[in-house]
Structures are given as structure tokens and as C-alpha cells.
């Protein structure tokens, strides 16, 4: 069920894991900033961050042998990190709908 990491790849796998979260945050922040400013340059950079994230997820899948059922997890991470920030942005807009009147 679990095929552990090669012992010489422990550090690499850990760094990739950390990088996934960091790029995830980078993608989220840049996406939000691009929406805020309407800048397509920032939007481009946010996608670049996401591409780096996807590459790290791929690398992690290779190092941690995430095959078989674990591929579902890889797919969910790729989808989740992509969609969640966009969803939260729309949610922010919607929840704050009519906010200015109440201020």
C-alpha cells in the first residue's frame, strides 16, 4: 500500500513538500493581487507559480511513489490548489456584496 521514499531522497521529498505549499501560497497571493489590480502580468506570474507547484507535485509523486490509489491524491492536490484560491476570491466578493452600504 505504501512504498516508502528512497532513503537518499528524503531531503528532496521534504523540500518538494514544503515547496508545494509555498508555491500554493504564491499562486494564491498573486491571483488575488491580480484580481485586485486587474493586472494581467500578475495573473501570468500567478499561473507560473501554479506551474511550479504542479511540477513539485509531480516530483513528489515520483519520489514518494504515489501510484495506484495514491494518484487520486495527486489529482486532488492539483485540482484543489488550483480551484481553492479562485473559489475563495469569488466567495469573498459575494460575501462582501452589499458591504459598502453597511459600513
Amino acid at each position: 500500500m505504501v512504498d516508502p521514499v528512497d532513503i537518499h531522497r528524503i531531503a528532496g521529498a521534504a523540500l518538494l513538500g514544503g515547496a508545494i505549499i509555498l508555491f500554493g501560497a504564491g499562486y494564491a497571493i498573486l491571483h488575488a493581487l491580480s484580481r485586485l489590480s486587474g493586472s494581467s502580468v500578475l495573473a501570468g506570474f500567478s499561473l507560473l507559480c501554479y506551474a511550479a507547484l504542479a511540477a513539485c507535485v509531480g516530483g513528489l509523486a515520483v519520489l514518494l511513489h504515489l501510484w495506484g490509489l495514491w494518484l487520486v491524491l495527486v489529482a486532488l492536490m492539483l485540482a484543489g490548489y488550483f480551484i481553492a484560491p479562485r473559489f475563495i476570491w469569488r466567495l469573498s466578493e459575494q460575501v462582501h456584496e452589499g458591504d459598502s452600504k453597511e459600513d
Binding site: 505549499i21 500554493g24 501560497a25 494564491a28 497571493i29 491571483h31 488575488a32 493581487l33 485586485l36 484543489g80 490548489y81 481553492a84 484560491p85 473559489f87 475563495i88 476570491w89 466567495l91 469573498s92 466578493e93 462582501h96
Partner: peptide, 14 residues
């Protein structure tokens, strides 16, 4: 971590 990362968006929005 996904909610943790996603919440960054809300902070930037606010």
C-alpha cells in the same frame, strides 16, 4: 494545507 493557502486570498481581498 489547502484551506490555509486559500485563506491568504481572503486576507489580500480584505
Amino acid at each position: 494545507p489547502i484551506p490555509l493557502v486559500a485563506m491568504v486570498v481572503h486576507a489580500v481581498y480584505d
